[in-house]
Design a protein around this nucleic acid. Structure first.
Lengths: 246, 246
DNA sequence: CGCAACATTGAACGGTATCAAGTATGGTGG
DNA sequence: CCACCATACTTGATACCGTTCAATGTTGCG
């Protein structure tokens, strides 16, 4: 599986606020990239965390399965995201992460990371930043899960994913691949698949979006942002923040 | 306001996985402790982050206010918690944090932190850990906000708060101060105050808890854990994880 | 072609919100 | 010490958003 590691490296460094030297030493210890099929499990629940895993291409989701079989998606990842920066300070993965599309990811063994950290505080800061970025997204999710209608939730989720793909430079023009089924959308939004369907139709009938065949087009960005009360500042931090050892 | 800083220091170090030397240099730059009244604002929304703030005693909450005036509590803090480790990598606080009880907190200016980080990677790791711990809690909240009934949400919230107070060594025996009103509970759980009231009565009638006059007693811990499907492992990481530069 | 997963639609049910009133409780000033 | 007020808590009736169940249509894949 040939894959342009160099291109990926620079993406990593810009996301993680590392300078080229740090980036190089971090990636020196990486395992060969792994490619995964759609729905393939990238990290098992309760599995011991043995390496830092970065998603190089594709999308992924973290899922929590309840005792009655229902599921809640607690995170969605796009290319460039770190999958488990949040889990590493703990000893075990707290939920399983699986691919939403075919995907490629890179593993950096913790052994290597542990060697690096004492001499490269910027790497610790970068991982801290990744974790903080994830936390900011989670806060937003908590707000709409707790307090907003199905329509606003769905709209906000679509805004967020589209914005993040844009930040990663992955959206070409006005439409992009959107691999979640309505059932999966429901699992992310805390809604039933049936209601997701109806809510999607509502957004469509308002001329805000088009979605079919795994392809999403945002027809009226301003209108959608309004329905969602979407304020992307919580995502811009990903670019702006470059604190620590720069 | 005399306050035993020494005692607080050791608490900090045990929580943040720092050795005594690092702890000392971190706290060397701290401002004099600030004490705040109940409901006093500790961090304003959109305020520029200028220091790391640690809650030394009391409890606090992070609130997000929606355009229609409704609120969602996105975090609850107990003594020993870092209030804004999550915000620091960003430039601004993303929500306001106010005291739930009278409280004391300690500010460590970012200027000082920036000086320290290059030479003390363990401090960056500790802040990363704090952020990861908060993220783990948020994941749990997302699961019950999205997928669980009012009863399970409420039970889980009570379990979490009680468990965290216990970890901090703050619960004396079988009852403890619980400063949230039913309205505030609703703002945390995504429920109306009226429904919180009815759900509380349900838990009371099952002999699981007693709650009145800001004092909570867990009568049947096992039963409450069951209703909540509470698995405290996501909080134990706070003690166990001591990765990096130890 | 046929099957399985996904999407759509309708009807009935239920958990939670909302509205509205009434009851403690605690603090304050006279 | 009491009257008063504000805040919190409690209770009932009704409405609504979203769920569940069930059926049908659609798409894509082996």
């Amino acid at each position: 599986m040939s894959y342009d590691l160099a291109a990926n490296f620079t993406k990593l460094s810009s996301r993680m606020a590392l300078n080229p030297a740090e980036e190089k030493s971090l990636l020196a210890g990486a395992m060969p990239p792994r490619s995964a099929q759609k729905d393939e499990c990238l990290i098992e629940q309760d599995e011991e965390t043995s390496s830092l895993i970065v998603l190089c291409s594709g999308m992924a989701r973290a899922v929590r399965t309840l005792s009655d079989g229902r599921q809640q998606i607690v995170a969605v990842f796009v290319a460039g995201d770190t999958l488990n920066a949040t889990d590493i300070p703990f000893l075990h993965a707290r939920n399983s992460i699986s691919a939403l599309t075919s995907a490629i990811c890179l593993s950096i063994p913790l052994r290597h990371l542990d060697n690096l950290l004492p001499d490269h505080p910027a790497i610790a800061c970068a991982l801290w930043l990744e974790t903080a970025a994830r936390s900011a997204i989670q806060q937003e999710w908590m707000v709409w899960l707790g307090r907003r209608t199905a329509q606003a939730r769905l709209a906000h989720f679509l805004c967020e994913v589209s914005y993040r793909l844009q930040l990663s430079g992955l959206t070409s023009g006005d439409g992009f691949e959107f691999p979640l089924t309505q059932r999966e959308l429901g699992d992310a939004l805390g809604l039933s698949p049936v209601h997701v369907n109806r809510t999607l139709q509502l957004l469509r009938s308002q001329g805000l979006i088009e979605l079919s065949h795994q392809r999403l087009t945002i027809r009226d960005k301003k209108g959608l942002y309004e329905v969602a009360e979407f304020d992307p500042r919580y995502l811009d931090g990903l670019r702006l923040a470059k604190r620590g050892a720069t």
